[in-house]
Design a protein around this nucleic acid. Structure first.
Lengths: 228, 228, 228, 228
DNA sequence: CATGAATGAGAGTTCATTCAT
DNA sequence: AATGAATGAACTCTCATTCAT
């Protein structure tokens, strides 16, 4: 929408000043949506959608309340943008790992788990999953989007890995889809659990992510493995 | 306006009507809490805690806003009552099952799963679990309440069952807490998954609860079982 | 409105029962307004008009909320009735004292003060004075009523006493009306002051009624007395 | 829409307008608290604390309900601000007078009375005193606040003046606290009296403030003075 | 007469959204 | 483009009043 750099360059001096000024300004302006999205993600994940005030988001992004509305016409729109922006990031990574891996399948699953954990699970982005389920009924299009863009590819990826294990005789033949769910479930549960315990003052049953994942993997692999 | 005592005593019919009327009135009062709880559960699960207005709950229960507050002094109290009514009793029941069960532990777990499913999982009450994780940060007191009243007893109950299996030599010795989580996780995941797919117009990966639970149990039991 | 006792007595036994029942009932019914007024006074004085709920009044009078409305059509009407009922009582007493007193006027003033204190000041009725001033702008008719029925007679009574003192050469000639106000002011102030301190948890400047009145009287008499 | 920067710098008028506008805007923001305080005082005094709605205050100040809460976080806070704005400063002023006065103490008391009257008594702020006593029991925290911030300093100030009179041999030694009360009482009474008569259509016993205060002071000074 | 369950108009307060500057 | 003062609809909760029993 703003004039392109190419057109500007016809007027040397003043346009240079403009460029510098506008450059900073534009970089600023260009970065704003990202900054707002980042701030919104942080707060939405931490406090939930309804409990996060638009002013907080703006403050955290270092702008005023009014500016937020310059970029996103409503809180709902902001939320949708947050989900879309962070989900698409999540998607692009990691589907290559399965295709290229060469070792035994149990080890593949471990690698996948670790990768996911370091890339998504341990970051704020993991909170999006819960946001989606929490607000699914109010934003069905987002649920749909999540299904198509995240859930389906993820399931496909894991299904491929499990199938590989069965094909190679490492895993017992079982209903693949259920096994995939069994792989995802502990992780999902852990996120929800941690969110819940984080809100509690008295936290009777804490959960250590690394230990938790290790045990779940062990349990699952034992459940999957072939026996005589 | 009502018939005088003299007339009443000689006229069984009118007194019967009176009785019936009063009966209805009192039955109404007695039934109100249940009706309100039912309405509250429905709306809380469907729209979330923060997004459900007290007046909506009242309307759905067929009463006015003020009447709701005649029975529950606040929205929080209403929610707590919903949790107590729908979840607490199930835990008591499950606790009894563990203590009295006499067969092999794998079978005990199956019984527990089936009981929970028929009592909670298949009903609207299952939505409460997700509710909590969704709104924990906005209502930390409720998160705490849920921790104390539901989460902790449930974990204790399952831990007892798993311990039983280990003690009887049926299960591999493992970190009990993690195993308990592994038992809960699939169920929790399934609820979230279903909630999400329910909001989708196109539902690419449906999930059959019975099949799902069966597979998860099989998988877990295989993972837990002792081998030579 | 109900049949009189005389008519009833034509039917010995059953009418006797009726009499007893109805007698109690009627005494009950006849006493209700007084009981309600008494309860209302207590609470209005203690908590103020707006802060007193009709249900509290009813409970304190030992009846249900609905019954209150059988006797007084609204809270405002109840308040008016309370003021009227308790103010008229206050009026009838004590105007005779001035006419009959025979000793020195300073002593007369002391007697008047003590009488007023024991009859009104120390009782709940004293709170009405503050109620009136508090709600005067909302109930102008009550303020008018208070002016006509209480303030004016009281002032007249005291003016008479002061005039007597001047006529007998005991008091310095002064503006009578102002002197009367000077007599009333400390008492009024004390009531307000006590009401305010009663509401304070930390009460830095307590006030002892007897000591207070004694000093005020002494001060005033010294101010009034004739000197060479 | 507004003039561009280039135009602004060459057009003093438009920039002046801008300045004026911005000035108005900011003056507005700066003036708001005062305007709200003024509106609140007017309504609180006229209708009482409980009977004044926050929206009324806002409307009278020419803003919307929400704006009020931009400046004062609650009705209580608003009231406290009103008290502070109108009463606290007067006390500081009076305190200075006592310390610096050099003439005879009776004259000091006259000066104090006149100062208070011109600053508080003759203005709407005088109504605050009655407000407190009227609503003390419903807002005990405010009663406490008033005790600490107004009552206690006022008493301390007057006690100092009376003590000065006794120390200088001008006043008879008496219980200081009671004398202080005797100084305050007529003023308090007068306020209540006027409030009450203001509500009356027929005003049988009007009260002239200046005459009243003069007589009370004369009476008190005569009561306090030392005699042979 | 008496009851108390039910009502619904408001009151205080919050916050997404707007718009003059 | 950016601000932040202002708005007002919406929400929870209260309580005077009504009315079926």
């Amino acid at each position: 929408m703003p004039s392109s750099p190419a057109i500007k360059s016809t007027c040397p001096v003043s346009s240079l000043i403009n460029k510098v000024n506008k450059g900073q300004h534009q970089r600023r302006k260009a970065a704003r949506p990202q900054e707002l999205l980042e701030a919104a993600l942080t707060l939405f994940v931490e406090k939930g959608l309804a409990a996060t005030r638009t002013e907080e988001v703006a403050r955290l992004a270092g702008v005023s309340k009014g500016t937020l509305y310059l970029y996103y016409p409503s809180k709902d729109a902001l939320f949708k943008a947050v989900v879309r922006a962070h989900l698409t990031e999540v998607i692009v990574e990691g589907s290559g790992i399965v295709d290229q891996f060469e070792g035994p399948t149990p080890q593949l699953l471990q690698v996948l788990a670790k990768t996911w954990w370091s890339r998504v699970g341990a970051s704020k982005a993991s909170g999006i999953v819960l946001l989606i389920t929490a607000e699914a009924s109010k934003f069905p299009e987002l649920a749909q989007f999540y299904m198509n863009e995240v859930m389906a590819p993820t399931h496909a990826l894991l299904a491929k890995a499990v199938q590989r294990g069965i094909d190679r005789g490492e895993f017992q033949p079982m209903d693949i889809r259920s096994v995939v769910h069994a792989l995802i479930a502990p992780v999902h549960f852990m996120l929800a659990y941690q969110r819940c315990t984080a809100a509690c003052v008295l936290n009777p049953i804490p959960l250590d992510p690394d230990q938790f994942i290790a045990t779940q993997i062990e349990l699952l692999l034992r459940g999957l493995e072939v026996r005589s």
